[in-house]
């Protein structure tokens, strides 16, 4: 029984290769159809992944800056840090809340220009230093940032709170729109391809109605008839996915290397090729296979009804 199944499997694989070659022009039509759509799908995925990546990077970089009172004690600074950490919508980890104390701000400014150096060199004691200590705080959801800012503002010892400017907000809204738009395009494309492939395969199968009729005549069960066609659809899907996969694998890596991972100066950081290209290749292969098999299945089913 097992041997029989193995034989049937191998025969199906062999026959699907044979019949793709025998019905070459129609097979080529199906394969091209899959290839073209998968290329567009690959481009869309690449675009949306990068836009998404950019959005995330910007979101991560958006911080609330809380300036503290000038005469605040070091003890109170620590307490305020703890209080901020307890608020909702604050990211976890040490990096999320960073203290920029007045001493390090002074040093930084002194290094940046001689004028500052002259003015500031005598502010050695905390009391002499008129600058304000500041906390840089990262939030989880930037849409909730205003509420978080308000909460921080209410903490005793906090004098001024600055959050991200309106522009960043808008930029992120636009990026969000682009990401959602590309997702919609990808899904629509996949559906259209499935439909197109189903139709192309339907034509392929229609041209082989005679073969199906004869198979029925010599006693093939519906499964016997369907399986070779579904295998063929699978194979068409795999063949159709080859070119897009090669393109994404080599093309994207080359692009990444060429621009050193960044576009428009340092404004846009590209998604690293690994594991990105493998994931995309996997998705492309899966779409090709599923769509090919499904298309065949649907198309042959139509011919099995009497």
């Amino acid at each position: 029984m097992f041997m029989k199944l193995i034989r049937i499997l191998f025969r199906n694989i062999r026959d699907s290769f044979k019949s793709i070659i025998r019905n070459f022009s129609l097979s080529l039509a199906s394969i091209s159809c899959i290839t073209i759509t998968l290329i567009v799908v690959a481009l869309s995925i690449t675009l949306s992944a990068n836009v998404n990546n950019m959005t995330k990077k910007i979101e991560e970089d958006v911080t609330i800056v809380a300036f503290l009172d000038v005469d605040i004690t070091e003890e109170r600074i620590q307490e305020i840090g703890e209080e901020i950490r307890k608020l909702p919508n604050i990211q976890e980890g040490k990096e999320a809340i960073v203290l920029d104390d007045k001493e390090s701000i002074r040093k930084e400014m002194m290094e940046s220009s001689d004028t500052y150096k002259e003015i500031m060199q005598n502010w050695e004691d905390r009391k002499d230093n008129p600058l304000k200590d500041a906390y840089h705080i990262k939030v989880v959801d930037i849409n909730e940032m205003n509420k978080t800012s308000d909460a921080i503002r209410k903490i005793e010892g906090v004098s001024v709170v600055k959050d991200s400017e309106e522009m960043v907000d808008q930029l992120i809204t636009v990026f969000d729109g682009i990401t959602k738009g590309t997702y919609a395009i990808v899904i629509a494309l996949i559906l259209v391809t499935a439909f197109l492939i189903a139709n192309t395969i339907k034509i392929t199968i229609f041209s082989r109605k005679r073969e199906i009729d004869i198979m029925r005549l010599v006693g093939a069960s519906n499964m016997n008839i369907k399986i070779p066609f579904v295998f063929e659809g699978l194979l068409l899907g795999v063949l159709g996915a080859v070119l897009p996969i090669v393109m994404i694998t080599y093309g994207y890596s080359a692009l990444y290397t060429k621009f050193d991972g960044q576009l428009f100066g340092k404004f846009v950081t590209l998604v690293k090729p690994e594991p990105f290209i493998f994931i995309v290749s996997g998705i492309l292969l899966l779409i090709g296979v599923v769509v090919g098999m499904f298309g065949s299945w649907r198309a042959v089913k139509k011919h099995l009804k009497i």
């Binding site: 041997m3 029989k4 199944l5 034989r7 049937i8 025969r11 004869i214 010599v218 016997n224």
Partner: peptide, 10 residues
């Protein structure tokens, strides 16, 4: 042979 291959004969 077509008529036999369907049944998975050796």
């Amino acid at each position: 042979a077509f008529a036999l291959e369907i049944f998975g004969l050796p």
